[in-house]
Design a protein around this nucleic acid. Structure first.
Lengths: 261, 261
DNA sequence: CGCTTCGTTGACGTCTATCAATTCATGTGG
DNA sequence: CCACATGAATTGATAGACGTCAACGAAGCG
């Protein structure tokens, strides 16, 4: 296992550990997962709609996005995935994709066989719950994006998206909330904010003019965090970053579990 | 157990069965879940943000919605929940809500203790996977709503929402896709479509004028299904209604599962 | 029968999309 | 090192979609 591979698995584990208590054995089981490395250049599709996959994708570098594609070709980013994110853990229980997954920048992905993920989930129920919980965070983020797109203007939408990435970056030790790398174009940011590239450009200018956010050549600088939180109505609770740690499965079954299906 | 209670559990089971293969024992375990009935009048909150709950809510009648609330009071519906939907199955692994849940019409809800759900999930791993998969459907719907709000005009947004409810109604045997009850106001529809009540009104008039959809006093009539599918760019794949049935957990663990945590 | 909620209409203003150039940044081959 | 190609960022002018405000009519309900 290369160090890069190992580093990504550790990031994924630490992501799980930030929300679930796991025993030594369970942690080792995660770190021992088999992976196959795949590299994608910018704007290359990783998963297409209706495709049936047999592995999940762990982002090990770069930025990956989930897309919804309209019939006329327009598209909408529904989530960003950063290093350490398992961008389609859902596929373990729903192998036929209903979305597409694309590399926004050059990206490195570790493919992990569904069979292996199911095996550790069956062997260690606490891992099954941890995976399920991880998917719940993803849902919570999606629900927040619905609110964002439905009820905010361009300033609010763009700055909320950047706030989210900021905290996720900071939490994964990939930068600080006020300065981090996000190697995407204004057009891609537009696909996330539900607007056009032209309007994103003008919105970024306004944010810069107000001395709130600077975004240039893939580097985001949030100049005034508090003001941005106010402007974008950002409440980080939905990221579930600071929940009290629990073992999701606290109940001992009343009968022994055979593990056989 | 009253017949109404039993009917709702059966609807929930049939929802699970439409996507997962479950043994007789597993099915019985679902039907034996303890429930407590709760009734809510229209616009009454069922769950508030930051509230920690110890039970999941199964909708047994009426319409329930998940909301995202803005600081200025404006709100956005992020999902509709109909009879047979477990509207916060997520809460089993994330008991602290990051959203609010509200009854849109008079609604009957069955509360099911988290402990019981965790117990059957541990006893029957296939149920754990079925629950997880059910949450995945919810995610898939959320992702589609992000696309809707980000990239469609008012005609597309409203008709897409109605298409979705139509198929979910039909699938749950609560009506046909072209005629079903949806006891909500135009204002509530506006909260789902990310627009104002006034504009929803005009959009509905336009749909009526074009002989596509009629929506009056809580009854939706889709006059020209094919035209609406075209107009709203509706592809039902994301609802995962007709997936091939599988047991999500097909791998036998290599070591015996103790079930003890 | 009065009250309240819901649906409907009109006038007006704002936000965002659209289209079409133009500048800027980056990388490549000569 | 320069000429050139390519994509990203920027600008201006214009149009359309949608929000806002205020009023009025219709329908359910005690």
């Amino acid at each position: 296992m290369t160090t890069a591979t190992s580093a990504a698995l550790k990031l994924f584990l630490s992501r799980l550990l930030s929300r679930s208590l796991l025993s030594d054995d369970e942690q080792k089981a995660v770190l021992r997962l088999r992976t196959r490395r795949a590299d994608y250049s910018a704007n290359r599709d990783i998963v297409s709609p209706a495709q049936t996959v047999d592995h999940a994708c762990l982002v090990a570098g770069g930025v990956v996005a989930r897309f919804d594609q309209m019939h006329d070709g327009r598209r909408q980013i529904t989530s960003f995935f950063l290093s350490g994110d398992m961008c389609d853990l859902h596929s373990v229980v729903a192998p036929k994709a209903t979305w597409s997954m694309t590399a926004l920048s050059h990206a490195t992905v570790l493919q992990i066989p569904h069979d292996d993920l199911r095996r550790v989930a069956l062997e260690y129920p606490a891992l099954a719950f941890a995976f399920w919980r991880d998917c719940t965070v993803d849902s919570s983020i999606l629900a927040k994006w619905v609110g964002n797109l439905g009820r905010k203007n361009s300033l609010g939408r763009i700055s909320h998206v950047l706030c989210e990435v900021a905290l996720r970056m900071e939490n994964a030790d990939l930068g600080s909330r006020c300065l981090f790398q996000l190697p995407i174009s204004q057009e891609q940011l537009a696909d996330a904010g539900g607007m056009t590239a032209v309007h994103v450009n003008r919105t970024l200018q306004e944010l810069r003019r107000r001395n709130l956010i600077r975004f240039k050549s893939g580097v985001v600088e949030i100049v005034d965090w508090d003001a941005i939180v106010e402007l974008s109505d950002f409440d980080p609770a939905y990221l579930m970053l600071n929940e009290p740690l629990t073992r999701a499965a606290v109940v001992r079954p009343t009968v022994s579990v055979s593990g056989q299906l």
